[in-house]
Nucleic acid binder design. Structure first.
Lengths: 112, 112
DNA sequence: CAAATTCATAACAATTCTGTTATGGATTCG
DNA sequence: CGAATCCATAACAGAATTGTTATGAATTTG
């Protein structure tokens, strides 16, 4: 997952309405009218949020007749999760080493 | 981890310079001059990025004399990682069930 | 103590984001 | 077929973001 994709995915996830949309979509696909009903903002605003999620690869849209169904898409989220996980692990290791060093120093002092 | 914290953490992570700062800090604490040297933008711009990371709980600042040392902080990243993980798992389950249903239907057809 | 270093903040400009209302194309309903 | 429904896009306003330069307080250095 390249840097620009991380930009758009994390940016997409940084808005509470968009996370709310994703949460709703976890229950299954919904059309735009259904999604709009769940929030307190206008339909065009929802349409735009959906578009941003789409561009980030977090949802997929499918037009059937006059309705547009929106469904969650996991790949982009998995990529971002992997990135975060990687860094959390890396930092943790670093801190573990730090703790190790600190506790060794403590032992050294205790030994005196 | 509450919604507003997720806002600030994901938003902080959505900028490539800030992710770059975090990557550098994984190697250990650095002062502002050192961090500024690693990027092609001004010191005040770096200072502001650091502040945003700080407010998101992704780094900690420690002033020693005239220098400010910056170090990565894992808790906020862990929280965001947990959120992402939760949803990825949830969606995956959903899709697994879908796959299950779809393949059962396929079997039904095969049985005919 | 004067000069240099470190870094935060203010002031500003350019750009992007997020909402609104207005509108209209496409599709479905009666 | 005319009316209603679904939803995307345009145009706009206000707020937020990200960079810049200018500046100065605090600290260290020579």
């Amino acid at each position: 997952m390249d840097s620009q994709t991380l930009d758009t995915v994390f940016s997409a996830l940084s808005d509470p309405t968009r996370r709310g949309l994703l949460a709703r979509l976890a229950e299954g696909e919904q059309n735009v009218v259904q999604l709009t009903a769940a929030f307190d903002i206008s339909q065009p605003a929802i349409s735009r949020h959906i578009r941003i999620l789409d561009e980030a690869g977090l949802v997929r849209r499918e037009k059937r007749g006059r309705e547009t169904f929106v469904m969650a898409q996991t790949d982009a989220a998995r990529g971002a999760a992997a990135w975060l996980d990687h860094y959390v692990r890396f930092w943790s290791q670093h801190f573990d080493r730090m703790d190790d060093i600190l506790s060794r120093q403590q032992e050294d002092r205790d030994d005196r």
